[in-house]
Nucleic acid binder design. Sequence first.
DNA 1: GCCCTGCCTGAGAGTTATCTGAAAATGCGA
DNA 2: TCGCATTTTCAGATAACTCTCAGGCAGGGC
Lengths: 229, 229
Amino acid sequence: MTAEARLLVVDDEPNIRELLSVSLRYAGFEVVTASDGREAVQIAERTRPDLIVLDVMLPDMDGFAVAGRLKAAGRRVPAVFLTARDASEDKLAGLALGDDYVTKPFSLDEVLARIRAVLRRTRGEVAAPPRLQVADLELDQDAHQVWRAGRPVRLSPTEFKLLHYFMINQGRVLSKAQILDHVWHYDFGGDRNVVESYVSYLRRKVDTADLKLIHTLRGVGYVLRAPRQ
Amino acid sequence: MTAEARLLVVDDEPNIRELLSVSLRYAGFEVVTASDGREAVQIAERTRPDLIVLDVMLPDMDGFAVAGRLKAAGRRVPAVFLTARDASEDKLAGLALGDDYVTKPFSLDEVLARIRAVLRRTRGEVAAPPRLQVADLELDQDAHQVWRAGRPVRLSPTEFKLLHYFMINQGRVLSKAQILDHVWHYDFGGDRNVVESYVSYLRRKVDTADLKLIHTLRGVGYVLRAPRQ
DNA sequence: GCCCTGCCTGAGAGTTATCTGAAAATGCGA
DNA sequence: TCGCATTTTCAGATAACTCTCAGGCAGGGC
């Protein structure tokens, strides 16, 4: 399979660099990495990535400076910035149009969604249908809304993320560890029981009909799927 | 046949080292072994394995230290760690992403699956088509689901593992000892009768049609195969 | 055909994963 | 600061699963 796109991941923390590059490769991207601003500029010049995932706090210069430098060199590359949760808003106001950002600590699902969104926009493609559907359960990623059998359902942010993760992986078994990795922040240190709790909440809110969609596979994980097939 | 990949197995217990190296060679890997951390680092430097199977508890240093040392030497090698079931979770949180772990006592099937998954990820390959089929019996590893003649069949974890082992070895006779080794944990001390019980369960669930797939070879073992065409 | 031995399978005891209600902790906006 | 919504933990109940036991059945050697 040919890669979806080439990404440059820039972060000075090796763990995060590793986390991102492994997951993004797994998601089908070609990934190169850099650990500081100078290196990032060099590698970007050489490998011409389609998008840069850029930590805002780098040892030598900040992420925005890296993006600025590339633009000055006539090589405008769209970026997804990684920023601390408490980053001042005006900093982010300086984002070039088309760029996006994710606050640390992020969840992998979040980063992937932003990257795909930015790539879609910059490639001028028609947005992929933002509606996911499994049986009579529908989820609108843009509107952040969910319907079951045509009736809207109110979900909390975490419930929404979990359902979203289930829906993009419909028919595939997801272990609690996988779910924790993708839906919760990467530094979540708590109990796996949160996943059980949230699955229970989801069931109560979206899986009340006779036709069950969320199935437990004891000892393995959970799977969202319509019966038959 | 050229080896799938070169593995380094590190464990101080000779029995486990032997168990693993024999089975992994049988599965098509090239295997080298080491019995402690120092030796592991030396051998890894010399033989450049594609992956290390690493006991976390070694006499001289722990498995994470070995991995850390190799990484520091600029030789990041993906690892599958062997850990006690009660290992503190935060220890495992220190896993570099891309690595994986298996708790002791493991089953060989489990270890093989992890090794293959890690190799796939680090090589950026797309997973092999996850469907196995024998006659009208189908098994989907991702969905963790089984169909017979198109109808879904509910299996417990052990039943699923056993059927999976049968299917990847279709047409080959498997002794009860072999089955016990691959599907049950290596230190399972119980009766071989469990295998009989589970074969019985499987027959009841997936082999009810006229066309029998699971055959008993008295005094030898079992074999899963479609009747001769 | 008879007998020995291995295999099959129903029943049951013990164990474990999961579910869920409730409470505690956290975060966020007014 | 308070109050509400949300997230996380906890623990008891429950359902599912694993494994053992033992009687009966059947294959194959004699």
